[in-house]
Amino acid sequence: MADLEVLLFDVDGTIANTERDGHRIAFNEAFAEEGLDWNWSVELYGKLLAVTGGKERIKHYLQHFNTEFQLPADGDAFITHLHKTKTAHYTRMMAEGAIPLRSGIKRLLDESREAGIRLGIATTTTPENVTALLRSGLGDEGESWFEVVAAGDIVPKKKPAPDIYIWAMEKLGVKPDVCAALEDSHNGIMSVNDADIPTVIITVNGYTEHEAFPGANLVVDQLGDPGTPCKALSGSCEGRSYVDLDLIRSLHAG
């Protein structure tokens, strides 16, 4: 196995637990602002997460959970506007510090930068959402920590398709065998697997803890920190109480 050179991070659910108390709330605020009587409960949103991408999620909701709603003549424009309204609410929430980074993320990023590991983002959320979260959690220069930010609609197919990871690796000029990915969902690991990235660490959350993660090297409840240990759900932390760069290198080496 080639030496580890790159860490690629998913965002929502991986860098921060943004889904239930971030994106879901922002969607509901957007619905209210636009005069819609829709409300996505915690349970319903868990079902909607089967589809990646905000605009795609709205379409899925209308096709399967709110079939009586009549879209305007230009349905795509309506959904795009609604999603932009939601993004505005989400970025405001992030600017207010509503969602902290998950345990171990800042530490692992610091370790990786110090060791010369290249960092990238591979996500289906919008670039505006990524920027807002990184600035909130890492400061105004947080986005610059990542050499490439692959986000939103820059590829034709979203996760579980591998397109976003392939695009990120092309921009970095690297092959899959020098990469490791950090994800939180079944859709995410399927995307990583089909991009031929050999090393995957999964940090589950309340929405994904019961999903299947075929091919994952390690599944944990969180990356953990000193004093806040992680729990291995599948695979081994090799005697460590939290996931650090040395552990990821060991997993990558096989």
Rank of each mutant, 00 (worst) to 15 (best):
N17P: 00
N66G: 11
I105N: 00
I154H: 15
T199S: 11
I202P: 00
Q222W: 01
D3F: 07
L48M: 12
I197Y: 06
D196S: 15
I25Y: 04
D163W: 10
Y61N: 06
S144K: 15
V178E: 05
A26N: 12
V174A: 12
L133R: 00
E170H: 13
T123Q: 01
V148G: 04
E43D: 15
H60E: 08
P156H: 11
V130R: 02
E43G: 07
N39W: 13
A30R: 02
N187I: 03
Y165P: 04
S250K: 15
Y207R: 03
A132T: 05
Q222C: 15
V51S: 02
E211S: 00
K55Y: 03
F78A: 05
A150E: 03
V200H: 03
I164W: 03
A151G: 06
F78I: 05
G54Y: 03
M94A: 10
M190L: 12
R135E: 15
T91K: 13
I79Y: 07
R107G: 04
S185D: 02
G46P: 05
D163G: 12
F69S: 05
A151C: 10
G46S: 12
I79G: 05
H252R: 10
A122Q: 03
E170P: 02
K175A: 11
Y45T: 12
P229R: 06
E211L: 00
E29W: 13
I202L: 01
V130F: 03
D110P: 02
H23N: 08
D163N: 14
H83D: 08
G22Y: 01
G13A: 03
S236P: 01
G215M: 04
A88T: 09
I202D: 00
P162D: 07
I58M: 12
T199K: 12
A253V: 01
M190V: 04
A32M: 09
N129W: 01
E183G: 02
L7C: 11
S250G: 05
G97R: 08
L48S: 07
A88K: 13
G142L: 13
I121V: 15
Y90A: 09
F27V: 08
D225E: 15
F69V: 06
I189P: 01
G224V: 10
E141K: 15
A32L: 13
W167M: 06
K158S: 11
I201V: 15
G254D: 03
F9A: 06
D163T: 12
G188E: 02
S250W: 05
R113Y: 05
V6G: 04
L71D: 07
L172A: 08
A32I: 04
F69G: 06
Y207F: 14
L247I: 10
L109C: 10
E33H: 10
P100I: 08
A180G: 05
A216M: 02
D225K: 10
K84L: 09
G173M: 08
W38H: 10
F65D: 14
L133G: 00
S236K: 04
R249L: 05
N28E: 11
T80S: 13
K157D: 15
A150L: 07
I79N: 07
T228A: 09
G206N: 10
I25T: 13
Q70H: 12
P100M: 08
F9M: 11
E211H: 04
P198R: 06
G46W: 07
M1P: 07
K106Y: 09
G53Y: 08
L7F: 12
I117G: 07
L172S: 09
L182W: 09
E5M: 14
N187D: 06
E5L: 13
T18G: 14
W40D: 11
M190Q: 13
